[in-house]
Structures are given as C-alpha cells and as structure tokens.
Computed example of a mutant assay.
Amino acid sequence: MNTDRIVTICRMLSLSRRAVPLQVFLDELEISRATFKRDLASLRDRFGAPIVYDRDAGGYRFDSSSPDGSVYELPGLWFSASELYALLAAHRLLEQIEPGILADHLAPLQSRLAELLGAGGHPVQEIERRVRILSIARRRVEPRFFAHVAAALMRRHRIEIDAWNRARDEVNTRVVSPQRLVHYRDNWYLDAFCHWRGALRSFALDTLRRVRLLPQKAQEISDAQLDAHYTGAYGIFAGMPTAQAVLRFSAERARWVRAEVWHPKQQQEDLPDGGLRLTVPYADERELMMDILRHGRHVTVEAPQSLRQRMAEEVAVLAARYGVGLASAS
C-alpha cells in the first residue's frame, strides 16, 4: 500500500463536489486500473472508507448517507510525502530561528513525523542534509524569557521587564502589555504597550534581563492601531511616517531591488536607462541609511534634502576614516 496514493485518493474525493471519474484517478496518480482497484479495496477494508461508485454520475464518491452527516477522514494523522517534507522543513526553520526555544515542545511532533516518513520510505536525514537556514546577525535570546513573553502574550497578561537600553547602556524596569511577537531580520521583538511611557514600544527580546508575569490583564490595543503604529514607517523604527525617501538605483542594482519589498506602501518607477526610482515612507532614518549604504555607489538619495545631508555626512566620515578625500574618491 502506498500511503501517498491513499492520502491523495481521499483528498480528491473530499474536495470534489461531484463524483470523480476513474480516468481522473489514473491520470492524477499515474497508476494502472488494477493498482487503483487495490488501493480502493485497502481504503474500504482497512480504513472503513465509505467509497461508492455512482453510475449516474459516472465516478466515485464518498457515501453521503452517514448517520451524523460528517465527511469521512482517514483515522489518525495522515500526510502525503510532500506535506511531511514541508512540515519538517518548517520545523527546521523554527529550530534554526532560535535553537532551544521550541525544541522540547516540538520534539514529540518531530518524532512522529520522522516515523511517518520512515514508514513511507522517506529518510528524515535527507531533510536535515538538504534544508539549510542561514541566519545573519542573529542575537541569542534566553529561552525562558521567550517562553515567559509568549505565555503572557497568549494569556493576555501584563509583564514586568528589565530591559537594557543599548544606546544609553542602562537597564530600565517597565510594566508592559504584550501585543505581538515579531521575528524581523533574524531577531525577535516584542511589540507592547508600555505603561511607564503610556505609549506603544518595541523591545528586542535579547535585551531583556528579567521577565515577571503579572496578574493584571493586558491593555488591549486594536489591530488597526498596531498596524498604523508599527507598519506605517520603514523598518523596525515604528511611528507615523514623517518623510518619503526617494532613492534612485542604477540599472545593474535595479535588477535585484525591483523584486524587493522595502515597505508595503512603497512606490516604484522604472527609468529609461534601466534604473529604478523607489519611494518609501520613514519616520527614523537610521535603519534606512544602513540599507542605502549597502548598495554603495549604485544608489542615490534624491529626496528629502535632510536625508541627502545625513548620507553626505556619513560618507564624509567614512572617507576620512580611510584616509581618502571626497574629491579624490569621486
């Protein structure tokens, strides 16, 4: 018995609004009539599948005369090989996003998936060999802090945190109402309402030094308010946009940037020379400047003037640090 075919036959019958002709099964599964008949017999005898042949409709369907009116499902946990591969690849992703955080919770699932793959002749070792997740500049998070924050988030409770401010090199104690966990550029952030500041704030989870669950219920903030605050401007620096950055990319670099999403509300304009003009809203230029700098001479800031000035100052400092004058560098 081929488990892939068994799952596919049941799925085809469940999803179809009418009887499925024999030839459709043979074409989809790429099997002979005899093989299909054997699979059908296995489904009926071993799994009690109420599959009947409807002569009027000219195909197979599930018997709709079930006493409780329910649709037949295979007993237990069933996946096709492709679904199992996808699940294990997703598990691999979670495992490498932050090693150790979910390992204990996902271990039973991983074990069960490995059994199912093994039964179908698909070695789980291949997934581990073939799927690679490359993380850049990932900062390690204390697993227990992640678990505490996630628990408070889902239970809708406030938490007291000691958060390290990197810019000022100081630790502040705050009470916050968790709103969302965000995985952004290989690092975890907590979007929360800060009761100390009386406003929405984001906290990098790796900066947390202590987390304590509080009995008070979290203050609820609507999705519309969260989206307006956290996705209105460019990058991780939240807030309402204060300016529009207009960036002109060379024809060479435009081949990459044209396929990128820098911001949900960005605007793109193809230029006659093959280049690209990209416009993105921003509230804080720090992260935007880093992304501009990685494109080097292939990007020009056209507007606003304040951002052009900041970029010019940054480039001047870099040139001086390498002992190169701006005139000679150009």
Results as ranks from 00 to 15, higher is better:
L102R: 11
I97H: 08
V149N: 00
P143R: 04
F79W: 09
A89M: 14
G120E: 06
A163W: 01
P108Y: 09
L102N: 00
L88C: 10
L116S: 02
S111P: 05
L134M: 10
E115N: 11
R158W: 04
L88I: 10
R138S: 12
G120N: 02
H91D: 13
I127K: 00
R144C: 08
L134E: 11
R92K: 14
L84V: 04
L74W: 01
I133V: 15
A137E: 15
E142C: 08
A107H: 07
A90G: 08
D169R: 07
R144I: 12
L116N: 01
A151E: 15
R138H: 13
A163Q: 02
V131K: 04
P123F: 02
H148K: 14
G100S: 08
V149G: 01
P99K: 06
A137F: 12
E83R: 03
R140L: 12
E142P: 10
L134S: 12
I161L: 07
A152V: 00
Y85D: 07
L116R: 04
R129D: 11
G121N: 02
H157V: 02
R139E: 15
H122L: 10
S111T: 14
S135D: 12
F145N: 02
E83K: 02
R132A: 14
L134R: 12
D169E: 13
A107N: 06
E115V: 15
Q96N: 14
Y85L: 13
I159Q: 03
A137W: 13
F79D: 06
V131M: 06
R139K: 11
R144S: 15
E160T: 06
F79R: 01
A151S: 09
G76M: 08
P99L: 13
R92H: 09
E98M: 14
R144N: 12
A150E: 13
H157D: 05
R168H: 09
E83S: 06
E128G: 11
R112F: 01
I159M: 00
A150H: 13
V131G: 00
F145H: 13
L106Y: 10
R129M: 10
Y85T: 10
P143Y: 06
A119W: 10
P75C: 06
L134V: 14
A90Y: 05
A150V: 09
P75E: 08
W78M: 05
F79Q: 03
A86V: 11
Q96L: 11
R132P: 04
A114F: 01
E83T: 05
H105S: 14
L113H: 04
A151V: 05
S80Y: 00
H122A: 05
A150F: 12
D162C: 00
G76W: 03
E95W: 10
E126T: 06
A167K: 07
S82V: 13
L88Q: 11
E95L: 04
I161D: 01
L113K: 04
L74Y: 02
S80G: 12
R156K: 11
D169Y: 01
R156S: 06
A163K: 00
D104A: 15
A90T: 14
S82F: 12
S82H: 14
A147C: 04
Q110G: 12
R155C: 04
S111F: 09
H157R: 13
H148Y: 09
L88A: 06
S80C: 06
E126N: 07
A90N: 09
S111R: 14
F145Y: 09
L93Q: 10
I127E: 01
P99I: 01
